[in-house]
């Protein structure tokens, strides 16, 4: 009995702690329009890697920043 109580409490804790991260990962997989929808959706209607593709072109592009941090010069 006690074992199940502990397991249930643990499950509740895990859910609360993981939800923000799960929502964040799911949002990253939504198409751009759906990611900006109001009210938001829990589960993506359609999966897309748009956001990950945009990483390479957004502002200076993702690789620029670790490169300049590591080298201390323009990349």
């Amino acid at each position: 009995m006690r074992r199940y109580l502990v397991a249930a409490v643990c499950l509740a804790i895990v859910t609360v702690m993981l939800l923000p991260l799960v929502f964040s990962v799911l949002a990253s997989l939504k198409p751009t329009a759906e990611a900006a929808a109001s009210p938001p959706t829990y589960w993506p209607d359609a999966f897309s890697l748009d956001s990950y593709q945009r990483l390479w072109t957004y502002q200076q592009g993702l690789p620029t920043y670790p490169c300049s941090t590591a080298s201390g010069r323009r990349c």
Partner: peptide, 12 residues
């Protein structure tokens, strides 16, 4: 179960 929960709580 406890180890797993500990890991998850520590993740953030």
């Amino acid at each position: 179960v406890r180890r797993l929960t500990r890991t998850v709580v520590f993740t953030p």
